[in-house]
């Protein structure tokens, strides 16, 4: 790896100051994306500002039907948390299916959504659940947060502090794994909650995670796997690579939606 300077931030203010002071400083959480990228010389930040020790950055709390998940909460903690399991078991299952056990012990929800990998799992979950992303300066609706491939609404120097999720009436996530990377070849999160029925798809869109209007409409009318049968899923704008063509992914979106509704 190229040389870098490590800084363990003691507070949000400390992290902001360190970010501004560094020439090309970056936040560090679990490192499961950033350190992996640095090893391959795909990233070379001058400074790494570790957010994990900041007070209040990790852990889950429940207030009525609302879950507040600290940005530095690991995938393993979300998967194993009793409140998440009770209020949104689909999200606990999603977290428990990310990568492998060592990745889940280190990787965090904040790092995952800040990175917004087009095949990552959390973006689909948070978009379908209509989550709110809380930063040190504002609150951002998931609909406005995930902007495109590895692109989010975060400004330079903005730090995610937590994610807020309201318990849905019913929800499920089904992921078709790309077995070498463990990421989603396609993943579909269906949710029926206060914001109506929402269907979010990861692993398939050329611009990253997206909602599917046709499937949402069909499932709003009838929450049954057969409701998806009459929906046509267009392969325009879908990814095509050695793992699957756009048409294959379009078909998977429908199949996984049906399975998710059955599992919900």
């Amino acid at each position: 790896m190229y040389p870098t300077k490590y800084h363990k931030a003691a507070s949000i203010d400390d992290a902001v100051a360190a970010l501004n002071a560094g020439e090309d400083a970056k936040l560090l959480a679990g490192g499961q994306t950033l350190i992996a990228a640095m090893k391959q010389h795909l990233a070379a930040p001058s400074d790494l500002i570790d957010v994990r020790a900041i007070d209040g950055m990790s852990g889950v709390s429940a207030d009525g039907d609302t879950l507040v998940i600290g940005a530095a909460t690991t995938h393993a903690e979300v998967a194993g948390n009793a409140d998440v399991q009770r209020l949104c078991p689909a999200l606990a299952a999603l977290a428990g299916g990310i990568g492998d056990p060592a990745v889940r012990y280190a990787g965090t929800i904040g790092g995952s959504i800040a990175n917004n990998d087009p095949s990552a799992d959390y973006p689909a979950g948070l978009l379908a659940l209509g989550a709110t992303i809380v930063t040190n300066t504002r609150e951002i609706a998931a609909d406005d947060f995930f902007e495109g491939l590895f692109t989010t609404a975060l400004e330079d120097g903005e730090i995610i502090t937590s994610v807020r999720v309201n318990a849905p009436k019913r929800a499920a996530y089904i992921k078709f794994r790309q077995p070498a990377s463990l990421f989603a070849l396609v993943g579909v999160f269906v949710a029926d909650g206060a914001g109506g029925v929402r269907v979010a798809v990861t692993g398939a869109g050329e611009d990253g995670v997206f909602r599917h209007a046709g499937l949402e409409e069909a499932l709003s009318a009838d929450w049954a796997s057969s409701a998806a049968d009459s929906v046509s899923v267009d392969s325009d704008g879908l990814l095509s690579d050695i793992h699957g063509s756009a048409a294959y992914r379009a078909n998977l979106i429908k199949v996984l939606t049906k399975r998710a509704v059955e599992a919900s």
Binding site: L28, G31, V103
Partner: peptide, 21 residues
């Protein structure tokens, strides 16, 4: 960060030593 040959325990949890500073 994919092979797991480097896994050690840190504070009781299995982590990839190659992806930990």
């Amino acid at each position: 960060s994919q092979c797991g040959a480097c896994v050690v325990h840190v504070n009781g949890k299995a982590l990839k030593a190659c992806t930990t500073l």
